[in-house]
């Protein structure tokens, strides 16, 4: 039987960490009976584990410091807390807030023009364009890179076109739209049953971030959020659960983890 090279053998580590399946484990145990050096190595690793546990397990029994309990409670404050962070958290935690059309104005708050929420705009644009058979999009998915850089430039913020394939939706393409006097963008996706959803994006002049929220109008649902540059909304004739799922999918890809 060949001896294990104890410095290279990942199998030995996997054995020590209980990562091998039963068959592999039995094989390794047989091999180890002939290999005292490898056995000693495994024993040394478990001694390392025990030493770490001896050193740090005591922390588990310590009372949780007050400042950590406070950090945990901070969010139980009502959503009108002055900190936008706290309200964003509260909104995110209370599953999804069902917002009416009068919820949040993404547009300029001045002037006499009618005010639309981002949910309104997204749903209006969806209703108009999602039914288009031949001219649903201006730039098709096969020119995704171009579509993305063009629309990103127009709305003033580069974005990543999310892949919604796990939800069954594939990118058809996108188009440039107007949100009153500002450019807006629409990405359109379609599933195997030809059902379409759209993602609407326009700049966020207030730069205030908002967690994901939900608005509905009849059978239409929009799930929207704001980062510091743009507001985004997933729109379609879908259930709230679907809208939430797709929005989270898009959110994860488009916002990412910053660290």
């Amino acid at each position: 039987m060949t001896k294990l090279d104890i410095h290279e053998s990942w199998r030995l580590h996997a054995y020590a960490d209980n990562e091998l399946d039963k068959e592999e484990r039995v094989k390794m145990e047989t091999q180890l009976t002939d290999d005292p050096e490898a056995r000693a190595e495994v024993e040394f690793w478990s001694a390392q584990k025990r030493a770490m546990k001896d050193a740090y397990d005591g922390v588990l029994a310590e009372p949780v410091p007050g400042k950590l309990q406070a950090a945990l409670k901070q969010v139980s404050k009502p959503a009108q807390d002055s900190s936008w962070r706290a309200s964003a958290i509260a909104a995110a935690l209370a599953t999804l807030v069902i917002g009416g059309v009068a919820g949040w104005y993404a547009g300029s708050q001045q002037g006499g023009a009618p005010q639309f929420t981002i949910a309104d705009r997204a749903l209006n644009a969806h209703v108009v364009y999602a039914v288009e058979k031949r001219h649903a999009v201006e730039v098709a998915a096969d020119e995704k890179e171009h579509l993305q850089s063009w629309l990103g430039k127009r709305i003033g913020s580069a974005f990543k076109t999310p892949d919604l394939a796990v939800a069954g939706f594939n990118l058809l393409g996108g188009r440039l739209l107007a949100a009153e006097d500002r450019p807006a963008a629409q990405l359109m996706y379609e599933d195997a049953n030809k059902k379409r959803i759209t993602i609407f994006m326009t700049s966020n002049p207030s730069h205030a971030e908002r967690a994901i929220e939900l608005a509905s109008r009849g059978k239409l649902v929009a799930c929207y959020w704001f980062n510091d540059k743009i507001g985004l909304a997933v729109a379609g004739e879908i259930t709230r659960e679907e809208a939430e799922k797709i929005a989270k999918l898009a959110y994860d890809q488009m916002e990412g983890e910053e660290s």
Binding site: M52, P65, L68, A71, Q74, I89, A92, L93, I212, K248
Partner: peptide
């Protein structure tokens, strides 16, 4: 707290880390 303590060695620093983690987790809970 245990993980943070082992990662950064220092108790006070570890709890700062846990505090940041709690805040971040609540913000990104969705």
């Amino acid at each position: 707290r245990r993980f943070a303590r082992a990662l950064c060695g220092d108790g006070a620093l570890a709890d700062d880390l846990v505090q940041d983690c709690i805040e971040r987790a609540l913000l990104k809970g969705h």
